[in-house]
């Protein structure tokens, strides 16, 4: 296709978008509503995903060592653990360090634990990370078999539930987004179809002078794209502003909580691109779907 032809299609598509007035506004409204819902879902999903990944990374096995273990026993134990398949890292932490961590993690209240510094009730521990967080359970079981292991902690139920919930949330989110997108495509194709009924005669005339189906389709493609892009303006604004305030307030919340959400930048940029992309796809698909019927002559 020549550049001048492409230019012509864009001009024509823009002109039709403008001329269809209320129908254009109705279509944009349908895209806007959908994209706000899809956008909110995406923000939730991506953040859930982020939190899950962060927690997944945090999943670690704490192997508490018997207080009776000699130094040579501890060395032997480290070697044994290292020999287990699928270990990413193993760190040794003394009971003094453990207590310090505990006090730090509890902030103000933690000061009370300072009383225990003279008579530390904790154990020395090996902190073991699995390469694949899903292997945690197996590795923990193996470690538990070794001598001089007092106990193994990894929050079994908590980890399993987290993984399950994560997967579930992802699937439900995707299904919901797909359903919303299809509804929007349906709405748009029907709205455009109303304007096309009026244009049916015009399409016949175009074919009379030898226009190919693609030639006729192009301006509709452009129009759909415009509808989608225009329809994504408000959703992007709403989500960016909303998310900005959320990150501002999360900063305060985070002082008390170890869970974080994605930083405003570059997340804001990514989500904007995704929303424009989905909007344009919805518009183009809906528009091309509506013109399809009239080209089969």
């Amino acid at each position: 296709m020549k550049f001048s032809t492409l230019k012509r299609h864009f001009k024509e598509g823009a002109r039709n978008t403008w001329r269809n007035g209320w129908m254009t506004i109705a279509s944009i409204g349908a895209v806007t509503t959908t994209l706000i819902l899809v956008g909110v879902f995406l923000v939730l999903m991506l953040n859930l995903n982020h939190i899950a990944n962060e927690l997944e990374d945090d999943v670690q096995i704490k192997a508490l060592i018997e207080v009776t273990a000699e130094e040579s026993d501890v060395d032997q134990l480290e070697e044994n653990i290292n020999n287990i398949n699928g270990i990413e890292s193993i760190d040794f932490s003394t009971k003094e360090e453990e207590l310090e961590n505990l006090i730090d993690s509890m902030g103000e209240q933690g000061q009370a634990w300072g009383l225990y510094e003279q008579d530390n009730p904790l154990n020395d521990v090996f902190i073991v990370k699995a390469e694949d967080p899903l292997e945690t359970e197996r590795i923990a079981a193996e470690i538990e078999e070794f001598d001089f292991i007092y106990r193994v902690n990894y929050g079994q139920e908590y980890v399993d539930t987290l993984f399950k919930f994560n997967e579930y949330a992802r699937n439900v989110g995707l299904v919901l987004i797909a359903a919303l997108v299809f509804t929007a495509i349906f709405l748009i194709s029907n709205t455009i179809k109303i304007t096309i009924l009026a244009r049916k005669k015009e399409i016949g005339i175009m074919k009379l002078v030898g226009a190919t189906n693609n030639f006729i389709r192009w301006p509709f493609f452009v129009e759909g794209m415009f509808l989608g892009v225009l329809g994504s303006v408000i959703p992007i604004a709403v989500i960016l502003i909303g998310y900005y305030f959320l990150t501002q307030n999360m900063a305060i919340l985070q002082q008390f909580n170890f869970v974080t959400i994605l930083d405003f930048y570059p997340f804001a940029l990514q989500i904007s691109l995704i929303i424009v992309g989905i909007g344009a796809s919805i518009g183009v698909w809906g528009s091309l779907m509506s013109v399809r019927k009239f080209l089969k002559v």
Partner: peptide, 28 residues
């Protein structure tokens, strides 16, 4: 092809109606 009812594109000008037949064949 010419019809009794002209079959012109109603929203295009005279010039654009005629030009359309040439745009279709990607004339410069």
């Amino acid at each position: 092809v010419v019809y009794q009812d002209f079959r012109l594109l109603p929203k295009l000008t005279v010039y654009e109606n005629i030009a359309f037949a040439l745009e279709v064949i990607e004339e410069s």
